[in-house]
Amino acid sequence: MRIELTLQDLVRARLAAAADPMGELAASLQVLQRRDGGRNAASAAFNRWRHRVWQGLPDSASVLTWLCRPDAPIPEFLLPAAGRYDLESGLAAVLRAEPVSLKAALRTAPAERDLPAWAAALADGDPAGLPRLVQAMQEYHDLALAPGWDVVCAQVDADLGMRTQVLLHGGIDALLTGLRPKVHWTAPVLETDDGIPATLPSEGAGLLLVPTYFSVCPALVPPSPGGTPRLHYPCVRHAAHSAGFDRGARKTPGNALADLLGPTRAAALAVLAVGCSTSELAARLGVTPSAVSKHTTVLRRAGLIITHRERNTVLHSLTPLGSALLDS
């Protein structure tokens, strides 16, 4: 999907304030159903979480998996307008979805014979089933997201902190360029690598960038009337941390890892679980930036971290291999 951003859009572009519980819920349902965990590193990072959730999934989730299919746009009424950063407000907005919004969002939904009648009627614009849908969303959230919501928030906050620094030092062009490789910015066109051949209209309302922990592919979300288009993009560090979703925060690297890498590089690897710049890493480790550069060079050559430059800032984060080593 693509959108052509006007000067007015760029002036009004901004970052989300926090993790979006409705966006995370919908994206996690897509990740749950993906079958490329052995080939796609970003998807494979959720294998342990996926196994746990499938084991406890309630029957009501069949409606949710029908609505939020992999490699398909998320129905717009499930992603209410930006500014709602708590689940209760988002679910209340779903309850108020208009019949015309339901029909428009579900016009391409596949026919499913096993759906309950109230769910199938949603595609005809019948809102009577919305309370049951909201109940199913709450039950799914309690099972799949609530146990590790603090991890989600920490990772989104870390991503937002890094993007804010990029915006501060490099401006909006650097911010949009830094969303690669699955988001392509060639002014004035922003395009997502999601395989959906559609163009989102731009009305000068800006663009809200929403880092999403459970996202594997970016998604452009059309605005509600008078609202702002949104880009839900994968957290740059979500793959590195998702293996620990059910275990809470990472443990301090043990003696075995320190023996393998050396104590400073082992500590650097742990810090980079949430990603940071060279100067930030130096401050955390208590060493000079030149010493950090030497350590990150070794870690990068070993395939444990990736490094990219945004104007005058050098940013580091873990690769899936680095994440697996830290989790072992």
Rank of each mutant, 00 (worst) to 15 (best):
L79S: 03
L79H: 06
P80Q: 02
A82Y: 01
A82F: 02
A82Q: 09
A82M: 00
R84N: 12
R84S: 13
R84E: 13
R84A: 14
D86L: 06
E88A: 15
E88D: 15
A92H: 02
A93E: 14
A93T: 09
V94C: 04
L95W: 03
L95M: 11
L95E: 14
R96S: 15
A97Q: 02
A97T: 12
P99N: 09
P99H: 08
P99S: 04
P99C: 11
V100P: 00
S101I: 05
L102H: 01
L102S: 01
A104W: 03
A104G: 13
A104M: 11
A105R: 06
L106Y: 09
L106C: 04
L106V: 08
L106F: 02
L106Q: 02
R107K: 15
T108R: 14
A109T: 05
A109L: 11
A111D: 12
A117F: 08
W118E: 05
A119D: 07
A121F: 05
A121M: 04
L122V: 04
L122W: 03
D124I: 13
D126L: 04
D126Q: 10
G129S: 05
L130I: 08
P131C: 06
L133I: 07
M137I: 09
M137L: 14
M137T: 03
Y140K: 00
D142R: 14
D142T: 13
A144Q: 04
A144C: 11
L145Q: 03
L145F: 08
A146F: 06
A146M: 09
P147N: 11
P147C: 06
W149K: 08
D150E: 13
D150Q: 14
V151P: 00
V151D: 00
V152L: 07
C153P: 00
C153D: 13
A154T: 13
Q155A: 14
V156Q: 00
V156C: 03
V156E: 00
D157L: 10
A158H: 07
D159K: 01
D159G: 03
L160E: 03
L160K: 01
G161F: 05
G161W: 06
G161Q: 04
M162C: 12
M162P: 00
T164L: 12
T164I: 00
Q165M: 15
V166H: 04
L167Y: 09
L167S: 02
G170S: 11
G170M: 08
G171P: 04
G171I: 09
